[in-house]
Design a protein around this nucleic acid. Structure first.
Lengths: 224, 224, 224, 224
DNA sequence: CATGAATGAGAGTTCATTCAT
DNA sequence: TATGAATGAACTCTCATTCAT
């Protein structure tokens, strides 16, 4: 009873963020006014400013929450699949799904990072940052395990490499998402297929050479 | 005579766009007000709206111009280099440089394309679209030539593949650009180096390799 | 035609100020919202901020205008009356009437002066300041003339003295105005009569009186 | 017991009022928020409203307390001095000092009185009102005594006259206080000296003077 | 009694865009 | 064509005050 105080704020924050999230998805962040958020959340506008510094912070909060969700779906994905390749694909697909579900938060995550020197800070920017680190951890350990089991080329996988892979995959997602109509018109290809094929190519960069031997040519031929 | 009338407006458009371009680079598009653009261009604010439908169109116009510039640096890049690998690298670097110079226009190019069914239209969206197609042509013919000369795997290169490559590269650029500070801190790596390494990896996907020759089927079979 | 630009702003300023003035009189400055002013003036709120920096500036503008009005009624008052005593009384009554008509602006005038070092400035604070100086001039020259004509004690009248008189009179006005109800209840006296009597007392301080002559010198001499 | 209950709230009221008083002096009434008062007093904001109807009432309470203080310094002043003139001057100076110390409460006292018909009421407005009456008493009896001792003109001194004097003096104080900078710049005169001189002039209105005697009567007689 | 929480209301400001001339 | 002027529509922020517990 007495210790409800620590939870209360979160309830309201979530209620507001939920409403904002709905509006943001529906109309986009920029086209959603704080008045609309307030109305949708059932609070007064002033109350919004009690729980969030401003509109950007609501978006940042939702970004963080969406990232947490993504992290979970990612770790679920990599632990669900048996083969290492399937894990890789599942991870990529998780990113793809995330970007499709929350395009705007994904955009925010792709914009310049605010590096918080203060690791003890607990604002949503810091949380987002830390969530990013956790995602890196998941991927790193996943690849390391694969390497040890002989599934991947036998070298140390570094954050740099993670970022290489991540960047490439995110780039594919971006094309699949943003150029969806063009892909359909110009190549007759659905974004999922486009992404999937690209993802396989990226995976081939990691594969051990012997087994890697015989694929590829057909892929693209068959892709269409 | 008739031509003269068509040209006059362009002078003003360019004058406005130049001024806007300077401001946009300096302060970013969103943080530049139409007042500032008007002042910098030496016109009244209302006049801006005579030559451009709105602020977004000014950005679109500048995006198109920057894209033209990029197209030229790209075709220069691929024609300058002797080896096909160098051409590939040069093309990637051209994109990298472009994104560094005009991050905001690059962002715009990465956002959803407005497909103009009306190919005869002459607004800057259509022009941008057509410029995009020309860039695709350049890359396609470049790769085709390489293939014919035996530098690349011997298969038909499609727009899809171009987009795969393009997406991956753009993804690397994005990371290099947006996560610059993080890369320096977490991996001690400069963005150029990060990008360069990733670019080489992507190139390796294209390289002719005896062993690599005959695979794929598997992927495609399992992939879908 | 071409030179209408210098006048236009004034028209709107006045229109806004008029509307604001009406509202201010009706509900008081503090209880009048900018939205109400905008509505009453027939402009949008944003337009208000085109012509006035903020609410305070509207009040300052109206204060200045009311002061100009007062200056005129004052100079009319002193030029209308034949005897010097009547002039003095008329001047006091002018202040009384002013304070009754515009209590809030009078309050503003009684609050600390913003001394503008920049005499070339043309904001309404500077104008108010200059109008104050002009009022001082009127009173000074009026008293000087009276002195020369033998109606007042034969000594130099200084700004300090003007302020002494002014302060006393303003003090009476304030009591008459603010303590109106109390005066009626406790002394059964109407504010006008109360003020009038006090004013006569103050005037007696100036009157030439053989005996008073040297008395005063001492006061002033001994005062410091 | 019954008394105890009456006293407890006062403790809190005083604690709050003290804190508010400190803030008010430091930042002015308007610029002090209830949050600040609450923080300074060590209560929650809502608790402020348990002990005071609203912010204005806190100011009114402090005004009353400051007035009590003034009443004491006034009665001390008039009883301390031997000569009646000195008493008069001391009374004026007491007001001057009060206004300098508590400009905002002084302003409040100069604003329209809330006449409480209900003399049994015990809110701070009534208390302030009664304190005002007591001050009037002090001044009246003081002047009456002076008259009886032949120091002042031999006539009945009324509340009206007290208010005349009071108004004039308060007017001088106001000028000395609010126009301080102007006086220094335009007349090179310090506010204290300015006030002192004016005060002496006002005193001269009361002095016994054979010739002045009947002059005054007429004025007052004619005034009504 | 004490208070955490919520809020109505309004100030101030910004800006892209429109419109009459 | 060019533009001065006006404005709708926000966002951001602040605060006194209320109310349920």
């Amino acid at each position: 009873m007495a210790r409800r105080k620590k939870e209360d704020p979160e309830i309201h924050q979530n209620r507001i963020a939920d409403a904002a999230g709905r509006m943001f998805l529906e109309k986009g962040i920029r086209n959603t006014t704080m008045d609309e958020v307030a109305r949708a959340a059932g609070y007064s506008k002033a109350t919004l400013y009690v729980y969030f510094k401003n509109k950007e912070e609501i978006a940042a909060f939702l970004t963080w929450k969406s990232m947490k969700q993504f992290k979970e779906s990612l770790s679920e994905a990599v632990s669900r699949e048996a083969s290492y390749k399937d894990r890789f694909i599942a991870a990529g697909v998780a990113l793809y799904n995330y970007a499709m579900q929350y395009p705007e938060y994904n955009q925010i995550l792709l914009s310049p990072i605010v590096i918080s020197r203060d690791t003890s800070a607990d604002d949503c920017y810091s949380r987002t940052y830390r969530a990013g680190e956790e995602i890196n951890e998941i991927l790193l350990s996943c690849m390391d395990e694969a390497r040890k089991n002989g599934a991947l080329q036998d070298r140390e996988y570094t954050v740099t490499e993670i970022f290489h892979l991540w960047g490439m995959i995110a780039g594919l997602v971006q094309i699949a998402q943003q150029k969806r109509d063009y892909l359909l018109l110009a190549c007759g290809q659905k974004p999922e297929a486009f992404f999937r094929e690209g993802l396989e190519k990226i995976y081939s960069l990691l594969e051990k050479k012997e087994e890697q031997a015989m694929n590829d040519t057909v892929i693209c031929g068959g892709g269409k």
